[in-house]
Design a protein around this nucleic acid. Structure first.
Lengths: 220, 220
DNA sequence: ACAGGAATAACACGTAAATGTTATTACAAA
DNA sequence: TTTGTAATAACATTTACGTGTTATTCCTGT
């Protein structure tokens, strides 16, 4: 980034990396790998989240490799805090788990890459560069979990299928917070008809208030 | 799948593929590629969505390669209809676009893979197998879009930061549809205090009803 | 031709929510 | 020490919401 005008592979595009990993052997192995590879520099390695929170703001690495399980604060929380302060910093979750929960927690916290520890050294380096170049390195198995989450989100509550199209229209208006009289004038019907529809909607959804109906509408 | 007991590479694990693509040359090229590769069989190729909707239910391919832009019904709608009827069928979106909207529409409709048309023949075959094996083949650039969507979803409305912790607690109760008296007993305070807090919340969020407050709470 | 669902409408009643005003206590910052 | 904010509480008033009952029109399927 510094000498961006010159196409010199020794000075441009060196990716600075920090490692947060409590296992001594893994941490040292990764540090050696990164420092031994052209275009990469490991500028910090920490064995816990607290130390990382203290030093990373000074070092400002391009990429942070974060272990999931750490003594004390876990890696998710550590990413969330650093990401909030440094939105452009890139985080790669490194873990042995492929659980849905852990994946989603990491992504929500601000990790953009999610790879397994069994990943080969060469692939790890590729993933770091990919992450730095704006990609989200992850296995296609993990990608499928993320995609599945999307598809689940898109599925509406089956109870809503029982509603007529007019009732869905009314429910949509309810969800937007309109008063009955506003719904009436929006849909060119009387307020009494609105009441009627709302009543039928509540019966079909088994709820007794607008908020509950809206929660079902949004699948919560 | 048929001769799954015998480990014969010529009969097991042959992935049946259907192609929906309006460009004659591309369609033929893909068909030739697939039929010319061991372990793959192209059992149908259609130049529009309507034809695919008619024939795919009879052919029941393992994987459907779907173009985005088709004459008449588009590929998204075609996937949505087929996926609803055959949830186990796998769909791969093939497109020249990398737009966020198109990616999300495809994923929501039920596509599990999303690759660009410029993908090499070898990579296309790999992606088909990957998709069939439960992965979600996509470039890491596209994965980043999906991840970014996650992270955006996770960001709460900044207006909520103005609320005190007690007010957030009250708002959470409001969002769950509790009556004031229920909130009062849940939090061991009087109903009048609940009123007071709700009033303050409404002022800070600039809303005049529970539904509007809850909508802000959920960032809608 | 008729049954049934869907959309429309009106009226009455009770409950819940939203608004306005005022006040006490506690705690933290200036 | 004073000032300010947060949390607590009470009372009165108005508006909105939810329920029960009844009825007409239109359309669809049998």
């Amino acid at each position: 980034m510094v000498y961006s005008k010159k196409k010199n592979p020794n000075s441009m595009d060196i990716i600075s990396v920090a490692i947060v990993e409590d296992n001594h052997d893994i941490r040292n192995a990764m540090e050696l790998l990164i420092n031994g590879s052209e275009g990469y520099a490991c500028i910090g390695a920490f064995n816990n989240a607290e130390m990382a929170l203290e030093r990373v703001p000074q070092l400002l690495p391009n990429v942070v490799l974060m272990d999931f399980n750490l003594p004390g604060m876990n890696g998710i929380e550590c990413i969330a805090r650093l990401k909030a302060e440094f939105p452009d910093m890139q985080f790669m979750m490194l873990t042995v788990y492929e659980d849905d929960d852990k994946i989603f927690m990491a992504l929500e916290a601000g990790a953009s890459g999610y790879i397994l520890k069994k990943t080969s050294p060469g692939e790890l380096l590729d993933a770091i560069r990919d992450l730095h170049d704006g990609g989200s390195p992850m296995s296609s198995q993990i990608a499928r979990r993320v995609v599945a989450y999307f598809q689940k989100q898109a599925k509406p509550n089956p109870a809503l299928e029982a509603l007529t199209s007019r009732e869905k229209e009314i429910l949509d208006q309810l969800s937007k917070g309109f008063l009955y009289k506003e719904i009436a004038s929006n849909l060119f019907i009387s307020i009494e008809t609105v009441r009627r529809h709302v009543h039928n909607i509540y019966e079909k959804l088994h709820v007794r208030s607008r908020t509950d109906a809206v929660n079902k509408y949004f699948n919560r």
